[in-house]
Design a binder for these strands. Structure first.
Lengths: 233, 233
DNA sequence: CGCCAGTTTGACTAGTATCAAGGTTAGTGG
DNA sequence: CCACTAACCTTGATACTAGTCAAACTGGCG
């Protein structure tokens, strides 16, 4: 069974590469004043990148690893709102309000690049290309999250199929194997994200397997026919 | 029973007001070259504002009326992805790709302001405040749509409660009565948006009514206790 | 090797879609 | 202004999907 693992992304594959090129990249964490990128800081599995409600001070680019975002509902329940893979952006929802809107947690050991908030302020005219790059990057994120709104109308099996298709497309977009990969998140995380019970997610995986659309063994997945997954939606 | 109707928004209440101020506002539709706002063009119920896949040429601000957005799924089925009320923006998802991502249809007679795409290009340094305003406006939209991703995990009654709360908050944000209003969309549109059957939406309205949380008669709604609706989520 | 978190499987129950029919509202033309 | 009509909304009965509770199994890690 496949166990290919998502490792680090190359900078040219990163959604923030255009933005990054506008900065001088420094090697220390003392970049807040200068407004420069701090590259590839290590994080450990379980580390909290930012918390919903905290002051927005950095935008993060995932250089390696995988992350999940959470919101806490009024009732106190935590819900998974999204996942971030290598090459993607964390924290963009904080730009407008000045506060992070979601708590982000590392699903595995990884590396993040830090882009200080000071760079996004409108006063500095020389940063116009940066803001333009951000508009495009944010649009990508909006597009990624467009799927989630459609989940509510689909059945369990379809939701899982959509989820796998989405993961595959995003891995592909950033240059990783897209038909054979290891999921970085638990069934519980997937269930939270899709709005299903853990048991239902498990059963849906088995049904897709039985239908010959995927191979699955724990977190290792092979998509036998990705287009069939999409058509299935 | 209440029948207060959403009418036109005042410019200061519009999310694009900051952007608008950066333009010269003209009275003719001949603004494409100048990159200026064409204000308050009338649209009729059922009119299509833009179609998914069409070239992105205008951003629209809703001056009056209400609109719904649709996507066509691979299978050909149409799904309602969102609603736009007076003071809100239509088409922002097209900025990154150059194409509209959703088809937008008028739910009632109304008026739109047109902002030509040429104004958003990065070449023109004098437009930097416009782009900054757009970032904030887009963030609002992302926030509005954050609800939808959470729908999947909620029951029918809760989804309807969330929906009513969301409508109420958005009406309030733009200066309209927020506890007593007339819904501009049909039960079918609501059902499509929430991923429920029409019958289930209808039953959910009746249950919320029975619980004393709302009054409802057709499209007219009174929220007896808006905070209770939120807590109910 | 054994433990523990995570995953799978089974039995049962609650909630929602579907099918069907009746009632209401809004818009049209006289 | 009223009558008519079509679209829209509500209500009821039934079938099926997914949640819940319970328990067995698996794999990674100390």
């Amino acid at each position: 069974m496949a166990t290919k693992t998502t490792t680090s992304v190359l900078c040219p594959q990163c959604e923030l590469n255009d933005v990054c090129q506008q900065y001088g990249v420094v090697d220390t964490a003392d970049s807040e004043v200068l407004g420069e990128v701090t590259p590839q800081q290590s994080v450990n599995k379980g580390d909290v990148v930012c918390r919903a409600g905290d002051r927005f001070d950095y935008l993060y680019a995932v250089h390696a690893g995988a992350f999940k975002s959470l919101v806490t509902l009024p009732g106190g329940e935590e819900r998974v709102t999204g996942f971030y893979f290598a090459g993607e952006i964390i924290g963009s929802e904080g730009m407008s309000t000045g506060k992070y809107g979601r708590t982000v947690v590392a699903l595995q050991d990884g590396q993040l690049c830090y882009l200080p908030e000071v760079s996004f302020s409108p006063e500095d005219a020389s940063r116009k290309m940066i803001r333009q790059g951000l508009l495009v990057a944010m649009s990508h994120q909006v597009k990624n999250e467009q799927w989630t709104g459609l989940m509510a109308a689909h059945r369990a099996e379809q939701r899982v199929a959509i989820f796998l298709y989405m993961v595959s497309k995003r891995l592909e977009f950033h240059g990783f194997p897209s038909t054979e990969f290891r999921l970085p998140m638990s069934r519980e995380d997937i269930a939270g994200y899709l709005g299903l019970a853990v048991e239902t997610v498990s059963r849906s995986f088995q049904k897709l397997k039985g239908a010959g659309m995927i191979q699955v063994s724990g977190r290792n997945v092979v998509l036998e026919n990705r287009d069939a997954l999409q058509d299935f939606v």
